[in-house]
Amino acid sequence: MKTKFNNSIIKVEDLVKKFGNFTANDHLTFEVKEGEIFGFLGANGAGKTTAIKILCGLSVPTSGKVEVAGYDVYRQTNQIKRNIGYMSQKFSLYENLTIKENIRFFAGIYGMSRKDIRIRLEELLDRLKIENLKNELIASLPLGWKQKLAFSVAIFHKPKIVFLDEPTGGVDPITRRQFWDMIYEAANNGITVFVTTHYMDEAEYCNRVSIMVDGRIEALDRPQELKKTYHVDSMNEVFLKLARVKN
C-alpha cells in the first residue's frame, strides 16, 4: 500500500484562514498523495468547506503555504483550476438545461473541443446507461442521479484531482454505495480524490483520512491504523472519541 502512493499532489503547510476573529482553519498541515482517496472528515462547521475552497482557488488563505498539483494557490489559481474538478455541497448543475447541455457547457468552458466533448459524452451516457435520458432537463431527475451527474461533470475534463464537498448529502444508502463505486472508478483511472463527508461509514472507503475538530486536524492516518490507535472497532467511535476529548 505504502509504495503505491509516493508523490504528493497537494501540500499544505501551516494553513490559516480567519474570518474576522473567527479562525476557520487553524494551522493545517497535511499532504495528499497522487492517486489516493483522501477523506477529509469533521463535524458540521469544523472548517472542511473553508479548506476545500482554498485548495480549489475559490478563497485566499490568510497565511500558510499551499500547493495543488504543483501550483501555488496564491499566484497560480488558473493553472490549478485547469487541473482540478470540483463538486460543491450545493448542487450546481443548471436545472433548466438537459444532461447533454450541462455537460457540453462545462466541458466547453474547460476548453475541450466539440469533437472531444461528443465522443466522451457518448462514452459517459453509455457507461451510466442513460442514453435515453440525455435530453431530459436536470430538474426532472431524482437527487441521486443529479449527484452522480454532478460528479461526472466534475471529472469530465479528466482533471488530476477532484474535490468533492459532501457529495452524498441527502441521498439514500444504495445511491451512496453506487456513488462510491464511481469514486473508486475515478481513482482507478488515476484521479486523486479529495472528499469531505460526515458519514463515518464512508470514511472506511478512503485510503487515508484526516479528522478535523474546531478548525484543527486532530488525527490523520489510514482508517485501520486510526481504529488501532484509539482501540475501537469503527471510524464512528474514533470520531466520537476525538470530538469528546475536545469538548
Binding site: 480549489c56 488558473n78 493553472q79 483550476k81 470540483y86 450546481s92 448543475l93 462545462f106 468552458i109
Partner: peptide
Amino acid sequence: EMGTIEQINVTPII
C-alpha cells in the same frame, strides 16, 4: 443565488 456561479468560478475561465 442558485450556486452555479461557484461551479463556473472553479473553471479556468478568464
